[in-house]
């Protein structure tokens, strides 16, 4: 009996996640897809522009649209493996970085609407007419936002990278350069694996933001975005004002970094990465080392990580409570 009930709860959860996919695949998949496609299109346009300009003014034109072609051509021609790997890593990173940016915005607004949109259009009454628990419903939205959507983004990053390699290989062939070294370098795939491994760590790190957005999504009658964003900002300003009066207050740096920042921005993929010794100046491929396995291990040891997980769990529980009892329809 118990196993039967567990399996039906699992299958229900599967259906709930599938429903989130049906409703939000435009954001989760197609937004990612079109952005990657845009990078590819710019790369192709760059190649064409470069070829045309080369034909018109000579060999010295530096083409830099989309993927950094000039660098790849130079390294591929001179057989400088180290530099070639860097250029390819940069290509992967370009897709990953843009994909992560899109992912942040898509998931942020997905979560803000997840428990609000169906109350607004009253379709919540249909969902609530089915034998589903509110806990399952809310958790399916959490899973869709911090597991399904990022996995799709990482998948598109790889697909975009491979498509770019095809384009570049064709271009190298036109120039009678052997494109094979592009395909035999293992490092970019290693980087991709590390991006994949980041997904669960980013998911844990994102929990406070996930819970925060879901609470407002489940609780307010209108404008969840304003509530979610303005409350921490106004609280921060008040905190600053209290400080001006000389009354004990939270240190501003701590407030914005560990409270407001964690509630609003923890969804940014990789925002758990600690600034390295030179400070957090991302200089592209050369700093890729910060996305490494020790950094991930370190993130899982940070107290901020686990305090955030607890806060996130409490907020998600609050969102479930609101989902269960909010009644205004």
């Amino acid at each position: 009996m118990t196993t039967l009930r567990t399996s039906s709860a699992l299958s229900n959860f599967g259906w709930l996640v599938k429903r989130e996919w049906w409703e939000s695949r435009r954001g989760f998949l197609w937004a990612q897809f079109w952005v990657a496609a845009a990078i590819l299109i710019f790369t192709v346009l760059g190649i064409i522009a470069g070829e045309v300009m080369k034909a018109r003014v000579g060999d010295s034109v530096d083409v830099n649209m989309g993927v950094n072609l000039t660098q790849i051509l130079r390294e591929a021609t001179t057989h400088d493996t180290v530099q070639l790997v860097k250029a390819l890593d940069a290509t992967m990173l370009l897709f990953a970085f843009i994909g992560a940016t899109v992912l942040f915005f898509v998931v942020f607004f997905y979560l803000l609407g997840a428990l609000y949109d169906d109350r607004k259009d009253r379709s919540v009454l249909f969902w609530k007419s089915l034998p589903l628990s509110d806990t399952g419903t809310v958790l399916s939205k959490v899973a869709a936002g911090i597991v399904i959507a990022p996995l799709i983004a990482v998948g598109i990053t790889l697909a975009g990278y491979l498509a770019a390699q095809v384009v570049i290989s064709l271009w190298l062939l036109i120039h009678a350069v052997n494109p094979l070294p592009l395909w035999t370098q293992a490092e970019p795939y290693g980087l991709w694996l590390r991006l994949l491994a980041m997904v669960p760590i980013s998911a844990l790190w994102a929990l406070p933001t996930v819970g925060w957005l879901l609470v407002w999504s489940a609780a307010v009658r209108s404008k969840p975005f304003l509530w979610a964003v303005l409350v921490p900002i106004i609280a921060g300003v008040l905190n600053f004002w209290i400080g001006l009066l000389g009354v004990p207050h939270i240190r501003a740096e701590f407030y914005w970094g560990n409270i407001a920042g964690r509630l609003l921005l923890s969804l940014i993929p990789g925002s758990w990465i600690e600034p390295n010794s030179q400070g957090f100046h991302f200089r592209g491929a050369s700093d890729l080392a910060i996305i490494d396995w020790p950094a991930m291990g370190h993130a899982l040891m940070m107290p901020q990580m686990w305090i955030g997980v607890i806060v996130g769990a409490v907020l998600i529980a609050a969102a479930i409570w609101f989902r269960r009892w909010r009644d205004e329809t």
């Binding site: 299958s11 229900n12 259906w15 009454l125 249909f126 007419s129």
Partner: peptide
Amino acid sequence: MRQVCFIADVATLPRWITVSEAVDFVAGV
């Protein structure tokens, strides 16, 4: 809710869902 159904008001089906998705989902859960 396994034993009770309700239609609360007209037009409470989610606007994005298709006929076959709605049937699949209810069949699933």
